[in-house]
Design a protein around this nucleic acid. Structure first.
Length: 560
RNA sequence: UGCCCGAUGGUGUAAUUGGCAACACGUCUGACUCUGAAUCAGAAGAGUCCAGGUUCGAACCCUGGUCGGGCAACCA
């Protein structure tokens, strides 16, 4: 139980096609080896989840391995608490990395040796120009660059200078180590790319041991190579780096080497996906944190009430390709509903309560009614709810002057209280402002659920016993941005599109008493309303629920 | 005046590698329903960016365009 039927027979994506071909050709002697290489400078988001599902999923599918490797070559941006959050998120998604977490920083020594090797072979040199000069000389994509005056200095001099850089004898920014490739290349990344920079910064793992740090391009491919990665999957923006990835491997690799394959990153409508922008939302307190339930982060989705299964099914459904894409946020919502429909126990919760009195129900009588916990899951069992003369129902479930298509309660109309009796509205009581304060009904004792006669009524509504109701705070979420592509406007900042109503807090909601013991991350379907998840801020006696997603609503959609 | 990618219903992904466009979401009907949910049945919606070419046959191959994305951090 609890499994969403997942289509394993779906067509292969282009990466799987490449892999199948590799397997057919017996290209690798060892198991296929993948890797997920996050930089520990932020929290994982749903786009990373796509990559995680791809890499770890491929390893599972082809009985291979998948490493978790932190790409920690920039000590000025990386922090160990990000390492912890990333590990937690991957584990929560249900994936297991091979062996232990790996770190690019573990390869600093090896990388350094390779750099020295390149210098000795005349393939790398120390440049002492300013950042501006170097950038100037690099040229522009449409014009070739020009060579640095330091480009042809003697090997011995390069060795000495690089040693000084390494020993921390030169200030930040004064020297860099460059690969000697081709300043005329149409590919900007091949115009003598930077291999090492001087950074007197404390690294989250190596501390102050190093004062030089390798650049991404001089670390990533080599790290893949060291770990025996067979397929190095990354997003499209690295496509243009591939010639450089291969060039560095050409210099150092023997035998089997990794192959880089690029795929399109995930874009989700009505949200932003860059770590920089997400960080900005956090730092400017536009959201409550990385795990704010409105954030597209893995931790945000978890807090919102998403399940790992729903995220994995989503990742599977969106596929892998190379063209730019924008996935409808509704597809993510479909994926949670699909899973939660199967696993979430049904309960009664009234968000906007109005008192209802059954005038012909005995004053002191209380019944224990039995309700099915989940019609989709026979093993979910039953529970009891007390029923009495006074109840709460949803204010929206009553209309004094209903339109013809409104099926619920109205004066003179009958409706079933789910799991209880059919009731009929007799009259309403209002306050001086005209707000309805109490709805008076009669119940039909002959129509008890499961026992009595089952007359057809147009609607069944949920309810909560007034006396035993549990108070709770409920947080309703809507999309964080009003624009489909908030980051896609050249002239406007993405923050201008923030939805002012993305969070609505409702206090004094009335829940059925069984919910009193609910604990954080527990998920329920509040019947007829949606799926809800207990928030981490929730405490006994002060329950807080997040609405993960409302139920599909075919009625209000039709325009009513 | 460059280089690298890409282009298939509203959205996303397929098409057994050249054999007559499929699946999912969404939308719309209808059935069922003690959740206006779920479930079930059905429908509409693309002729594959454009123009040529090769071929008995092209979404797949070739040529030339058009449009979109990326590339000029001592970021990854």
């Amino acid at each position: 139980m609890g499994e969403v039927d997942n289509n394993n027979s779906r067509a292969l994506n282009f990466i799987e096609n490449i892999i199948e071909e590799d397997v057919r050709q017996n290209k690798y002697e060892k198991p296929l080896h993948f890797r997920f290489p996050p930089e520990p400078n932020g929290y994982l988001h749903i786009g990373h989840a796509k990559s995680i599902c791809l890499n770890f999923g491929l390893a599972e599918k082809y009985k291979g391995l998948c490493n978790l490797r932190f790409d920690d070559t920039n000590p000025t941006k990386e922090e160990s608490h990000y390492v912890e959050s990333i590990k937690k998120d991957i584990e929560w998604l249900g994936f297991k990395w091979y062996d232990k977490p790996y770190f690019a920083s573990d390869y600093f020594e090896q990388l350094y040796k390779w750099a020295v090797k390149l210098i000795k072979e005349g393939k790398a040199y120390v440049d002492e120009q300013s950042q501006e000069e170097i950038s100037q000389q690099r040229g522009v994509p449409t014009r070739p660059g020009i060579e640095s005056p330091y480009r042809n200095r003697p090997v011995e001099e390069n060795l000495n200078l690089f040693e000084k850089m390494k020993n921390g004898e030169v200030p930040d920014g004064s020297m860099i180590l460059r690969a000697k490739i081709d300043m005329n290349s149409p590919n900007m990344h091949m115009r003598d790319p930077i291999m090492y920079r001087v950074l007197h910064a404390t690294h989250h793992r190596t501390g102050d041991k190093w004062s030089i740090y390798p650049m991404y391009d001089f670390a990533h491919g080599q790290s893949d190579y060291i770990e025996g990665i067979t397929h190095s999957l990354c997003t499209l923006e690295f496509e243009i780096h591939r010639p450089l990835y291969d060039w560095f491997l050409d210099q150092i690799a023997e035998g089997q080497r990794p192959r880089q394959i690029e795929f399109a990153r995930l874009n989700l409508s009505y949200t932003v996906m860059s770590k920089r922008k997400l960080l900005e939302l956090v730092e400017k307190n536009l959201v409550s944190g990385w795990d704010d339930p409105r954030m597209p982060t893995v931790s945000g989705l978890r807090r919102r009430g998403y399940t790992p299964e729903s995220i994995k099914n989503f990742a599977d459904r969106i596929g892998i390709a190379k063209r730019d894409n924008v996935i409808d946020f509704g597809l993510l919502e479909f994926s949670v509903r699909e899973h939660l429909n199967i696993i979430a126990p049904r309960v009664f919760g009234v968000l906007n309560p109005v008192k209802l009195v059954l005038t012909n129900y005995p004053e002191d009588k209380t019944e224990e009614l039995t309700l099915i916990n989940n019609p989709e899951d026979p093993d979910a069992g039953e529970r009891k709810i007390p029923f009495g003369r006074e109840l709460y129902i949803e204010r929206d479930d009553f209309m004094e002057d209903p339109p013809r298509k409104f099926f619920r309660l109205a004066p003179g109309r009958e409706v079933r209280l789910k799991g209880a009796y059919i009731i009929k509205c007799e009259k309403v009581e209002k306050d001086p402002q005209g707000n309805i304060t109490t709805i008076y009904c009669t119940y039909d004792p002959e129509t008890k659920s499961g026992e009595g006669i089952n007359r057809k009524v147009k609607a069944t509504i949920h309810w909560v016993p007034l006396k035993q109701a549990v108070n709770a705070e409920v947080r309703l979420y809507d999309r964080l941005f009003l624009d489909e592509d908030p980051a896609g406007h050249k002239d406007k900042d993405f923050k201008e599109f923030i939805n002012p109503d993305s969070l609505k807090i409702i206090k004094n909601c009335k829940l059925e008493p069984s919910l009193i013991t609910a604990v954080p991350e527990e998920k329920f379907q509040f019947q007829r309303l949606g799926y809800f998840c207990v928030d981490k801020d929730s405490k006994p006696g002060q329950l807080i629920f997040n609405r993960t997603v409302p139920l599909r609503d075919g009625w209000s959609k039709k325009g009513r």
